[in-house]
Design a binder for these strands. Structure first.
Lengths: 159, 159
DNA sequence: AGCTTATCTATAATCATTGTTGATTGACAA
DNA sequence: TTGTCAATCAACAATGATTATAGATAAGCT
């Protein structure tokens, strides 16, 4: 995704105002590869700017997504996740903890095989791989008692 | 998906009771290729059985999904959609009206290409094609004034 | 610095879904 | 077929994610 400085330019050029709140959100997102939810972005940003509201986070994330500077992912993990990585890539989703990671790989056969299917005009193709991440495989193998545990889809804080 | 009679057997064999409400829901789902939301299943079923509650629909859909007799899809269209088609297939989603249709096609390269990625154990691979359906392409081309119109994600009634 | 207008916070509303509860109803066995 | 008990029903309330409303505030241009 673009740097905070570039996003500042972009917002100004579109007639949108650049507020400290928005800049704080830009900083949280920049280089973030954790696919955070709006809530997680809010928690991270509020540590730096305690008066920030969740609504502002939603608004800014939606603005960025509308401009194509951020991708919104709906992966069935309860809430939308935002992806600052704009390179062509796909996703790996853990069914147990909800962790999302990136998979690089171009699959030309999907595009050629399904092109112009049923009169549709296809603009994007998303591939989602689901299963268990390394940690959750171990937890499962070592007889973790409750696979429906509360940690399922626990908020994954970013580093 | 299994026929209402087979589902009746299956529920009994699992110790679940087969109520008229459940049978009504089985009938609504059988052969349904419209990927209905819970709300749409409810609206269809309630026409036949006016006392049915939405909660019962959710409960039965979840029971069927837990048994693997129905797939729950999270496609970012606002609410979960239920897919009675258990054959291996993927989905085409219209960004404008939310219509979902099936795409058959086996893409071996995505399995071989991404196998055992980053320590993950992959159990399912879903491919989602997004774009505009035939109707919405026309609406867009003919200068439909409001692409954010209310008909976006309108409930798609089934035949 | 002042004006205009977008944005901010806070609060409340909405939507999809799930939990709770008392009444009702299947399935099974006698 | 009828009694029994657990499962299910419907109505209501609660939850979690997201969005709308409105008055106060501040960005950006002049």
């Amino acid at each position: 995704m673009k740097s905070p400085a570039e996003l500042t330019e972009l917002f100004r050029s579109r007639g949108l105002k650049v507020t400290p709140q928005r800049q704080c959100i830009f900083r949280v997102l920049y280089g973030n590869e954790a696919h955070p939810t709006a809530e997680v972005v809010y928690e991270t940003a509020v540590a730096e700017m305690p008066t920030l509201s969740l609504k502002t986070v939603y608004q800014t994330l939606n603005d960025l997504a509308d401009m194509g500077e951020l991708h919104q992912l709906e992966l069935g993990t309860g809430s939308a996740r935002f992806d600052a990585n704009l390179d062509a890539h796909h996703h790996l989703v853990c069914d147990r903890c909800g962790q999302v990671s990136d998979v690089y790989g171009d699959f030309p056969e999907i595009r050629t095989g399904a092109a112009r299917e049923q009169g549709f005009r296809i603009t994007r193709t998303e591939v989602v791989f689901r299963g268990l991440c390394e940690n959750c495989q171990q937890a499962h193998a070592s007889g973790a008692p409750d696979p429906e545990a509360d940690l399922r889809y626990a908020s994954d804080k970013m580093p």
